[in-house]
């Protein structure tokens, strides 16, 4: 009798061990550039976020943060959520999240500097803490970093298991004059990300958002 009880307990533990949650979940950290004229692009970011809210499943994590003068800060996180395991609760969380974003977009103020690296470092920290299975950092920016005086961002990224996706990388005026500048800028970020062990992609066509989770 004792043996069978022990066996049942062992089987229970074994089955409980089999249920994995974290491994299959996605963690998405989206950085929104609010510097200068790019702040005007934020309306487009809404459609991306709506897409993300539509595709993310119960158990997934989503956080949205701004890129401003000093992005390496929790204060820059506009909204964050880990969706409940029950679909009905997760749907309500999505509605609340959407409302928060709408409030933010309608009241956003542009920042004088662009600290993309700080935002990425913050994203790495947040997603590592969340412990999701797949980690995505979405950068909604023109990728033109402009650090304020005294800000140091020479910390190497540790991006193994991370996918960094640049969205809507707009061409600046000088890029139109000399496309090499644009290419160099994108290439520079690719080197930084891939150097840190992460995957790098650029999606400029917002009609192809399904490519975000293609890999």
């Amino acid at each position: 009798m004792k043996k069978s009880i022990v066996f049942i307990i062992m089987m229970g533990i074994l089955l409980a061990g089999c249920t994995e949650t974290k491994k299959h979940t996605k963690g998405v950290y989206m950085l929104l550039d609010t510097s200068g004229t790019y702040a005007l692009e934020l309306q487009r970011a809404r459609s991306i976020l709506n897409y993300l809210l539509g595709v993310l499943q119960p158990g997934d994590t989503l956080a949205v943060a701004t890129i401003d003068t000093g992005s390496f800060s929790e204060k820059d996180i506009i909204a964050k959520v880990t969706f409940d395991e029950r679909p009905s609760v997760a749907n309500n969380q999505k509605r609340a999240f959407m409302q928060k974003l709408e409030n933010f977009v309608s009241a956003v103020k542009s920042s004088p500097y662009t600290d993309i690296s700080g935002g990425i470092l913050q994203a790495i920290e947040y997603l590592n803490e969340a412990g999701t299975g797949k980690k995505y950092i979405l950068i909604f920016s023109d990728l033109k970093e402009d650090l304020a005086k005294g800000h140091v961002r020479d910390v190497p990224f540790r991006l193994s298991d991370f996918n960094v996706i640049a969205l809507n990388v707009t061409k600046l005026r000088q890029d139109i004059r000399d496309p090499k500048l644009y290419m160099l800028r994108v290439e520079d970020w690719r080197t930084k990300v891939e150097g840190g062990g992460g995957g790098w992609r650029v999606i400029n066509d917002l009609e192809r958002l399904d490519n975000i989770f293609a890999k």
């Binding site: 089955l15 089999c18 249920t19 994995e20 949650t21 491994k23 299959h24 979940t25 499943q57 119960p58 158990g59 997934d60 969706f83 395991e85 029950r86 679909p87 009905s88 997760a90």
Partner: peptide, 11 residues
């Protein structure tokens, strides 16, 4: 998924 959760996996 509403009953046992939609985020847990067996294998």
């Amino acid at each position: 998924s509403e009953m046992v959760g939609g985020a847990s996996y067996i294998g």
